[in-house]
Nucleic acid binder design. Structure first.
Lengths: 184, 184
DNA sequence: CGTCATTGTGCAACTAGTTGCACAATGACG
DNA sequence: CGTCATTGTGCAACTAGTTGCACAATGACG
């Protein structure tokens, strides 16, 4: 039940239409809770139904049939209650680790290449996060109000750092001394 | 499409019944691809249908109506093909990071407690992994054939190390000097 | 022999996320 | 004025995972 809360958070930061939300997701909340426009529209409908958000009366006619949503007090309360909830971390589900495990049984041809590819992807993501950190959280501005947002970004950075580190080690190990890459 | 491959891997390591698979998942493959017995039975049915596995003729009548499955050549081929496939890492979806982001907007009462709770859970998981490493991969036995399995375990260890590290830092930051924990 | 815990298999309904598409309204451009 | 790109909303079908339950067979125990 995280998507509705992700949407409430985004709408509290700034009332938006479905498409605007989708775009904003892609470069902030979507980093740790991605969503498609279809899903977002469906969820907006449910949130409106539940009385958590409402459509803002349109200022002027816009492209398409644009609807701007804003959060109602009930929605804010719902979100605050959710923040304080105890919820266990969701179980890890990682296909790459699973494939390495399978490779231990049926052989690993093609796997090293895939590790290189993933390493490149994670490096790129790490770069992106570091860019955002430089832009949004420069060292001189340690505003207290951004503490939590900075911590979240730090989470992303540390996570990608873990992946690049682990993948680098794995590649070294597989291609390194005495490696038998294609053993069955 | 990872669960069937997880099952094929487990069955290649050792032919098993549905319940045995479920139990074995809980202490190996399930660490990075958890599954319930219901899901496993359903998938076993599909895999049999597809000709990837078959029921072993029963040696002697057992409890319940036990069925032991083994992997057929077609199943092994399917698994080997999957190992070599290019598949992007699945997007991160983490409710805790999301909740921190929400807390930045509606206030953070109760959040620090939750961070402590998660830290304890991740520490426990890390301990468990380190136990397994000590048991299954003692330093003297660097057998080449366990290389991949050891790397997978390393992945789990490094991942939990990331979480404990990040959570520790986040708690320090939130409860530390000049903290304003319940600000709205 | 009856009862109960254990081992074992599985169905049904639901929830959340994905994929593929349809279609409405508007402004820019020839 | 006609066409087309862009902005915008949304339905439908599917896939994967979760939750709650039913029920079969066997062995242990009184």
């Amino acid at each position: 039940m995280s998507l509705p809360h992700a949407i409430l958070t985004a709408l509290l930061e700034k009332p938006s239409s479905g498409l605007e939300l989708t775009r904003r997701f892609d470069r902030s909340i979507g980093y740790f809770w991605p969503s498609t426009h279809q899903q977002i529209y469906r969820e907006l409908g449910k949130l409106e139904q539940a009385g958590h958000i409402r459509v803002l009366p349109a200022a002027q006619p816009a492209r398409g049939q644009k609807k701007e949503y804003e959060v109602l007090p009930a929605g804010r309360e719902e979100l605050a209650a959710w923040v304080a909830l105890a919820e266990d971390p969701r179980p890890v589900r990682d296909p790459l680790l699973l494939r390495m495990r399978a490779a231990a049984v049926v052989g690993a041809p093609g796997l090293a290449e895939e590790l290189h590819r993933h390493l490149a992807l994670h490096r790129r993501q790490l770069e992106e996060y570091l860019e955002i950190e430089k832009r949004d959280f420069p060292p001189e501005r340690t505003a207290d109000e951004d503490r939590l947002r900075r911590l979240v970004l730090r989470g992303g950075i540390d996570l990608e750092t873990f992946w690049t580190g682990w993948l680098t080690g794995a590649i070294d190990d597989l291609e390194g001394p005495g490696a038998a890459p294609d053993r069955v």
